[in-house]
């Protein structure tokens, strides 16, 4: 009997100890799980914040990209339209210059162009070129410049003159085409300003 009691007591003691250990382990595990959960929560919160922040950054980036591209596209379209309008004005002006009467005033212009060209080449002993239709007018202006000679061939231009030194080494182009081409960037700005566009 005694041995049975002792055995029961031992079993009971072991059970009690085991129970304590299990409960303690369970408590520890619970506390640890709780702690892990808490840690995870802050980590998750941080991760959540990071995802939201990254998403916002990405959205900002895309917004900037879309707005930037659209602004630029709109501006480029405007540039094309203004460019085309300025070119149309130019073409119209060139047509008007071509049709302008070659009268006394024009002879005065040719005289100015010739003097300017000769002063650049620093010589009056030059060969003068013009287009076919203005040869007579130019010839009459040349009477004032005895050293200058009218070239036998004509050049293709709107008006004005081109001169060459006798040896052909130096040329100065004072045709209306060349002058317009030289001044085109300045004239473009003035025309664009008429459309309300400035540089």
């Amino acid at each position: 009997m005694l041995s049975t009691n002792a055995l029961e007591q031992t079993i009971s003691k072991i059970l009690s100890q085991t129970e304590k250990r299990v409960v303690s382990t369970l408590d520890e595990t619970l506390a640890e799980s709780q702690k892990q959960l808490d840690d995870m929560r802050s980590e998750l919160d941080a991760e959540y914040d990071k995802i939201i922040s990254d998403g916002k950054k990405e959205a900002d980036k895309i917004e900037k990209q879309i707005v930037g591209s659209s602004d630029l596209e709109a501006r480029n379209q405007q540039l094309l339209v203004v460019g085309e309008a300025v070119d149309n004005v130019f073409n119209e002006v060139l047509e008007q210059i071509a049709k302008a009467p070659r009268d006394k005033e024009y002879s005065g212009l040719l005289d100015t162009l010739l003097r300017e060209a000769m002063s650049v080449l620093r010589s009056t002993d030059v060969i003068v070129y013009s287009n076919q239709s203005e040869r007579d007018t130019v010839q009459s202006v040349l009477e004032k410049f005895p050293d200058a000679e009218m070239a036998s061939e004509s050049i293709d231009c709107l008006g004005g003159i081109q001169i060459k030194s006798r040896d052909g080494a130096m040329t100065f182009d004072n045709t209306l085409d060349a002058r317009i081409s030289r001044l085109k960037p300045l004239i473009r700005r003035d025309i664009a300003a008429k459309f309300g566009v400035s540089g």
Binding site: G168, A169, F172
Partner: peptide, 12 residues
């Protein structure tokens, strides 16, 4: 910007 054009030289 210069409005008077330059001289062309052809002796290279």
């Amino acid at each position: 910007m210069a409005t008077v054009g330059g001289v062309e030289y052809s002796k290279i």
